[in-house]
Amino acid sequence: MDFTSLFTWVPGPQFLFAQLLNGLTRSMLLFLVSSGLTLILGVMGVANFAHGSLYMLGAYGSFTMGTLLGGAPSSFLLAVAVVPLAIALVGGLIERLLLRRIYEAEGVMQILLTYAVVLMVADLVRLIWGPETRGVPKPTVLAGAVTLLGTIYPSYNLLILILGPFLAFGLWFLLYHTAFGKVVRATALDREMANALGINVPRIFTLVFMLGAWLAGLAGVLTAPIGAITPTMDLSIIVESFVVVVIGGLGSFWGALLGALIVGVIQAFGILIVPRMALISIFAIMALVLILRPWGLLGNPRALLAR
């Protein structure tokens, strides 16, 4: 490997700062997808491989919204409002019509079922939207850039950066400070006990799955203006999200946040150091975490034993 090329061009602090911001933006999107994934895993015990497909549908939904409205300035806002709800509905249908039939069966069958959805959605997307890469223009208000500590940075990315913590806070509030959250956590802790206490567990499952789908759909819509919309984006995001969830600890909400920060930032800088190895490093990190600390950074080792 040619290491000298690394030293001929030393990135300036401003560039590094911009790269850090890029990484954090990515982290926020990853967190949106992973928090839903980890929630579904924690509450329902289902490793939802179709989560990336929901994210992809969100991005394509945003694209369709844009074409339908002919690129009206309000179309992006409308997409943010409508598309995630539609994805939540899709998620609800998947839970109700498919997953619910096999809760009695063991874990693998659920994995396989969601995997079947992945395969089907991947081709349906190609069937509906075609194989070519699609894009969504940034909303005009956010199309510009701002100067931040001497670094010029796109305002849209900044918006996501700011939005992320708010969403994380909102989710935390929902899970830890509302009646709904209490019921969800009780269900996650002990399904049978929750059932005995009169909690409508199937309904909680549907709602949790819909919430996860909504988050994935929202991430898809938000990523649409800054990333390429392709029929293969489902696989890359699901793999990254699983990495995030594993690093953070299966079913751990804060773990998803920490994992997303780690993965996003590592990818942003990894790509600078060894461009080709960024992808490997993610899997290598996942492998390392699983070998050294299989319950993740913030997960509970005892919960793992019970699993």
Partner: peptide, 28 residues
Amino acid sequence: YFCVRLHGILFSMLTLAFGQVIYTVTFQ
């Protein structure tokens, strides 16, 4: 050697990680 220590979904994840490392190295 590393994978068989884990069970369930974690085993699956670790095999995925190793498989993809092998794939990515080959690919890149």
